[in-house]
Every structure is written in structure tokens, then in C-alpha cells.
Design a binder for these strands. Structure first.
Length: 197
DNA sequence: AGCACGATAGACT
DNA sequence: GTCTATCGTGCTT
């Protein structure tokens, strides 16, 4: 794993870029759903040419949104229980996405605490399933544009620098060594710490 | 059968 | 306090 790397500030997100670039670009961006959310601190990239990706075997009913226009949501059910949120990226039809794994809550904390049934702010959205519950992600949001309500994406300020860590993705068996997990270095809101090298 | 997960229980430092 | 193992849950292959 590489040491923390400074990332240049930017004002807009290019969703047509490759998944690993979008995944890094989304760190520090504020994500809200119906005004509830926070600052993205952890993402993972998935690509068509990637045996760990839902899109790897081509379009199906479940992953259809991944093959639609970039900048939209791909929502899927995980382990029969959780709803998880991805950002579709890459050229339209390419089948790439970025899993939003964790955020630092900034807006609507009371709402998130209700939905999660706990108080500890660090556990409200530290993991894709927890985030899904905290933001009330559900399949009605599948395919919806992320620049329109109920979504809101607020790119970080042009002057803001973010320290990004990378490492292996979590909870996968195939391509487990690919370092396509991205996180804000040392954030207390990560789903898990990054392994030391 | 196999999951892009999380809560819990139990062991250990 | 930390770490690890177990299992619920429903949908895809």
C-alpha cells in the first residue's frame, strides 16, 4: 500500500473518468440524500474488466444501472439485508462504478440516529450497509441522477486538499489484491482502518 | 452455493 | 480495550 498521497483540489467531478479516478475524486465530496448525509471518506472502484465487479459478467436485471449513463446511482441489495449505493462512472455502457463505503456525518444527524437506532456518530455511516440505512437508500433511487433531488453532491472547495490512502478492497474474494479502496487518511469514520504496509 | 455486510458473542491483551 | 468467528438474510448464479 502506498503512503498517503496529496490530491489536487478540484471543483467538478468527471463521471466519465475511469472508476479508480472517480473513486479518488469523490473523497471529501459532500453527499446528501433529502438533506441528510456528510462528507465521503471511503470509496471502492469496480470496473467491467474486474472479476470482483457486479458488471463483470455483463448486463443483468440487477446491474442494469451500471451500464446506463454515468453520474447516476446504482443501488443493490447486499446479503439480503443492506442497500448499498454506487456512483456509475466511465463511458456510458461501460459498466463501471464506485461504491460509497463511508461518510463523516454533517447534515441530519438526528435523522440518521433514528434510522440507525444508535447514537455513536462514528457508527452512523461507517460502512456501505450502515451508510445505506443512515441515508435511507432504497431501490427507488436506482438509476437516479446524483445531481438532482433527492441527491445532492457538493464538490469540495477548490482550495481544499485531501490526504488519500489506498489499499485492497474489503469483503471480496476475487481480485482481492487490487488496491482500489480509497479513503481519507486517518478518518475516524472509515469502515475499517487501512492496513499498515 | 456464494455473496462489494454488520451485529453479536466470546477469546484474548 | 482489541480481535476473530458465526450467522441472518434474500437475491444471483
Amino acid at each position: 500500500m502506498a503512503p498517503p498521497t496529496p490530491v489536487l483540489p478540484h471543483l467538478a467531478i468527471d463521471f466519465f473518468a475511469p472508476a479508480h479516478e472517480v473513486a479518488a475524486a469523490l473523497i471529501g465530496v459532500e453527499l446528501l440524500v433529502d438533506g441528510v448525509g456528510g462528507r465521503i471518506v471511503e470509496t471502492e472502484a469496480y470496473d467491467r474488466d474486474d472479476p470482483a465487479s457486479h458488471s463483470h459478467r455483463g448486463p443483468t436485471l440487477r446491474n442494469a444501472a451500471m451500464f446506463g449513463p454515468p453520474g447516476r446511482a446504482y443501488v443493490y441489495r447486499s446479503y439480503g439485508i443492506h442497500w448499498c449505493l454506487n456512483v456509475v462512472c466511465g463511458p456510458e455502457g461501460h459498466g463501471a462504478g464506485v461504491l460509497i463505503r463511508a461518510l463523516a456525518p454533517t447534515h441530519g444527524l438526528a435523522r440518521m440516529r433514528e434510522r440507525r437506532g444508535l447514537q455513536d456518530v462514528r457508527l452512523l455511516a461507517a460502512g456501505p450497509g450502515r451508510l445505506g440505512q443512515a441515508l435511507a437508500i432504497d431501490p427507488r433511487l436506482n438509476g437516479r441522477p446524483l445531481d438532482q433531488p433527492p441527491f445532492e453532491l457538493r464538490p469540495r472547495a477548490g482550495t481544499e486538499q485531501v490526504q488519500i490512502q489506498t489499499g485492497p478492497r474489503i469483503g471480496i474474494t476475487r481480485a482481492a489484491d487490487v488496491p482500489w479502496r480509497f479513503g481519507e487518511a486517518a478518518s475516524p469514520f472509515l469502515s475499517r482502518p487501512f492496513p499498515r504496509r
